[in-house]
């Protein structure tokens, strides 16, 4: 009762990285709240799935195993969460801000009338004073997220309603094993008690999932392009530089919106958060929402023809010049000087 629960996404029998990241964060929050960390896995053929989550410090794994529960559809998964939460009354529920979490979370919150905050970039525990009603609350979840296109950061609390629900994007939290030998309890829930046959109204008739082409989250060097790249063709230059340096290619939201790069390369508050050892920003002006997703990079190089581009203020090296001129030179001198 009153524990912290993480909804774990599963694809091809593998728990998603974003869920493991949330378990890592969930463990430290549960320690602060002095409650248990629980994981909920819903799908098909889940035997042994607990082995993937126990090392992250999970005390209880709930599994709901039914062939009809994979692939994910909204209403059956909603029913499991709603019925389980009515029974277990968790104080906090975390899920990935993915196409699943952002489909499921609002539906569950709407059914339970509990507050949900999307795309949190930070989660903390703290008190809250409601001056109007002269009430104080201890140990609330601070759900911290950018708002207004990333120009402000808001701290949201849900004083009265439970669970306090939040979604977090992949890559925002760090994934870290808590204890490789940690052992919790497995609770197999009977699907019939949680899902009605009438919940299965949406039929998935075709599914074509690819492994993510880009692995920008794990890359140690990122060459990222912005709207200033001007075209999809000009991005080829960045792929050349990336191939030379052993880097991945990333992009700003504006570049992705303009169709210069695929969505899974998007870096920023509405894309992936990255912390590489080298970040080369090419033609990126530096909207706050982009900077928030890469400011923790060890070294930042900004290549921009505008010497006053906002990104320059956080760069270690500012090269004032056009990308067309500078990028080929970087390739040339790298090839010349590396062994």
């Amino acid at each position: 009762m009153n524990n912290l629960i993480v909804y774990c996404e599963i694809e091809d029998g593998i728990i998603a990285d974003v869920s493991l990241e949330l378990l890592t964060k969930g463990r430290s929050l549960a320690n602060q709240l002095n409650c248990k960390l629980e994981a909920l896995v819903i799908g098909s053929n889940l035997d042994g799935v607990e082995k993937q989550v126990f090392p992250y410090g999970v005390d209880t794994v709930y599994t709901v195993d039914d062939p009809r529960l994979y692939p994910y559809t909204s209403i059956p998964h909603t029913s499991v969460l709603v019925n389980l939460f009515k029974e277990q009354k968790p104080q906090v529920c975390l899920m990935g801000a993915t196409s699943i979490g952002r489909d499921l979370g609002p539906r569950v919150s709407s059914s339970l009338h509990s507050g949900l905050t999307a795309d949190c970039t930070s989660l903390e525990i703290g008190p809250h004073e409601d001056k109007k009603n002269n009430k104080t609350y201890e140990n609330l979840l601070y759900q911290i997220r950018p708002a207004f296109g990333g120009n402000i950061v808001a701290t949201i609390v849900n004083p009265e309603c439970r669970p306090q629900m939040a979604t977090v994007r992949e890559g925002v939290m760090k994934k870290e094993v808590y204890d490789p030998n940690y052992k919790g309890e497995v609770v197999k829930l009977d699907p019939k008690k949680y899902v009605a046959d009438t919940d299965f109204v949406v039929e998935v008739i075709d599914r074509q999932m690819e492994k993510s082409k880009a692995n920008i989250k794990g890359a140690s060097i990122i060459v990222a392009g912005g709207y200033g790249m001007g075209s999809k063709e000009n991005f080829d230059m960045l792929f050349d530089l990336a191939a030379t340096l052993g880097a991945e290619v990333g992009a700003s939201r504006a570049a992705v919106d303009a169709g210069f790069a695929e969505h899974d390369r998007q870096i920023g508050q509405t894309g992936v958060t990255v912390r590489p050892k080298l970040y080369i920003a090419c033609g990126i002006s530096g909207q706050i929402q982009h900077i928030a997703g890469m400011q923790d990079s060890s070294i930042i190089i900004s290549i921009n023809s505008d010497p006053n581009a906002p990104i320059n203020t956080i760069a270690d090296y500012v090269i004032t010049g056009t990308v067309e001129e500078v990028v080929p030179k970087l390739i040339k001198y790298y090839k010349k000087n590396s062994k």
Binding site: L116, I152, T155, A292
Partner: peptide
Amino acid sequence: PTKVKAVQNV
């Protein structure tokens, strides 16, 4: 159910 506790400029 959600309340804005604080807003900060970035």
